[in-house]
């Protein structure tokens, strides 16, 4: 079972109960001002954004093959078998490559702290062990956010689309984006109209880097052999030239001696 979330934008009423519940789980203060900030930050790890009559949800998407996990030089991020992408703040040195690489701009940094860390949703991974849904799903009065197994949620999403023709656009956001995510979305209008990036590649992002990184061992091996070879050859050529006297030094025409 791989834990995932399904967010149905057509059901969301924008009450922000999910934000409030999430903040209370992390022990973060929540008030009117924070509610009005429609962006993920160290102040809140999930946010509901308003697009006229419609809403969208932003938080960590818990990619199947996450960019943050692959780029972190100290391995502070882990994609757990259970689904969530979790962060270990004791390893983090603050290079912020995760933030630069994340296609959803999910990791937030504590810019004003002297001991800054990254904040991001962890899909309530501690509650997962107890079989409980995430706080955001639990608190949602409209069942716009539900927790479940990813495969089950995909089936549920398809069922909703089939049973309500015309109500949804024919797309489950997160099914394929950057190799798939553990947060899935449904919408009544094209996703780019409610603030989601629809230009993301289908390929998982770590592959773009691995295409190059995988050549490192070969580069080192071939490189050291080649350099040693060049060293040996040029040293020998020089020896020969010296043995043959100055007449044979045509290749060193830059030297005046």
């Amino acid at each position: 079972m791989a834990r995932a979330i399904l967010y149905d934008s057509t059901r969301c009423v924008g009450c922000r109960e999910c934000e409030k519940a999430c903040s209370s789980r992390w022990g973060l203060p929540y008030d009117e001002l924070i509610a009005a900030e429609e962006k993920v930050s160290v102040k809140k790890l999930v946010t509901i954004r308003t697009h006229g009559e419609r809403f969208s949800r932003k938080s960590c998407m818990h990619c199947q093959d996450p960019a943050c996990v692959s780029v972190c030089p100290v391995g502070a991020f882990t994609k757990t078998a259970a689904g969530p992408v979790v962060y270990d703040g004791t390893k983090c040195m603050g290079c912020r490559y995760c933030m630069a690489a994340c296609p959803f701009q999910a990791p937030a940094y504590d810019w004003n702290s002297r001991l800054p860390k990254v904040s991001k949703c962890d899909l309530c991974s501690d509650r997962a062990a107890a079989g409980k849904p995430t706080r955001c799903s639990e608190s949602c009065p409209a069942e716009a956010t539900i927790t479940g197994d990813r495969d089950d949620l995909v089936r549920e999403a398809r069922k909703r689309m089939a049973e309500n023709p015309g109500q949804y656009v024919d797309k489950i956001y997160g099914l394929q984006e950057v190799g798939g995510t553990s947060v899935l979305m449904l919408s009544g209008v094209p996703f780019d109209q409610i603030g989601y990036r629809t230009d993301l590649p289908v390929r998982a992002l770590p592959g773009y880097t691995w295409d190059v990184l995988k050549h490192i061992p070969d580069t080192v091996t071939v490189g050291s052999v080649m350099l040693s070879g060049i060293y040996w050859l040029t040293a020998r050529r020089q020896k020969v030239a010296e043995a043959e006297g100055d007449g044979a030094r045509g290749f060193r025409k830059g030297v005046r001696s």
């Binding site: 692959s70 972190c72 030089p73 390893k91 290079c95 490559y97 800054p116 770590p206 691995w210």
Partner: peptide, 26 residues
């Protein structure tokens, strides 16, 4: 100056992640 917690600059030397370009650069 740029690292959030520069006193941990040695972390990549013991906490490996060979899939990371930053790890290699470090």
């Amino acid at each position: 100056f740029d690292l959030g917690q520069p006193w941990r600059i040695w972390h990549p030397l013991i906490m490996w992640n060979p899939r990371s370009v930053m790890f290699e650069v470090g």
